[in-house]
Amino acid sequence: MARLLELRRACTGYGQLPILHSADFHIDEGEVVALLGRNGMGKTTCLKAMAGWLGLWSGQHLWRGADISHKYKRGGVARYLARDGLLLIPEDRGIFARLTAEENFHLIAGQKQKAEMELRFPELRDKWQTMGDGLSGGERQILSLARALSVHPSLLLLDETTEGLSPRVAERIWQILDELRKAGQAFVVVDKNWQRVATLADRVLFLAKGQIVESVTGNELRAHPEIAERHLGL
């Protein structure tokens, strides 16, 4: 499988505060990777660094085998990566409050994709004219997924995928992610529900104090729950 994304000795943070220290990992095509760790260990920062939202202070950022670290000087790395198929769905789902659901969708997708996504996500059908801030948490997550999937991304990054959703809606999201996995869609998922994550992911990376401290397969994690207990302090 071809390598999609790689971070080598990646360091970054906010202002003067370092969050990610020398993180080393990669994502391959079609692979499902979960990023687990306690709160404040740098999961969101790691996703933002992968998507180019946050520039690296040091280390290398490789996308499709090419080092793109030098692009940070000119800016626009997030835009470059988004146009080349790497999309991040942040914890707040990234739905613009003052745009209708339809406008949110059409920021990157066309009419044809709207019809496709309506078939795939029927719950969006009568929500297109609702303003972003009038959508429920689940609707926002589904709209965000539909928007991202409409451009057939190579890699999706999903932060706190089911956070704040009702169990029924969360189940729907897990079902969608399972379908994506079966369809060969590569994605990185961050979620507190490590048991569900373990059934979904090919690989699980544990993040502690801004570093990848352990990497196991989903099957290994299911067989040895003590690994999660050790890293997540359960």
Binding site: A78, L88, P90, G94, F96, L99, I108, R147
Partner: peptide, 20 residues
């Protein structure tokens, strides 16, 4: 819509590939 998105949240607009 892209301008309004950029006014609301530039980082997210860029993250969708919009050339802000």
């Amino acid at each position: 819509a892209a301008v309004r998105a950029g006014v609301e949240r530039r980082e997210m607009a860029e993250g969708l590939g919009i050339d802000t």
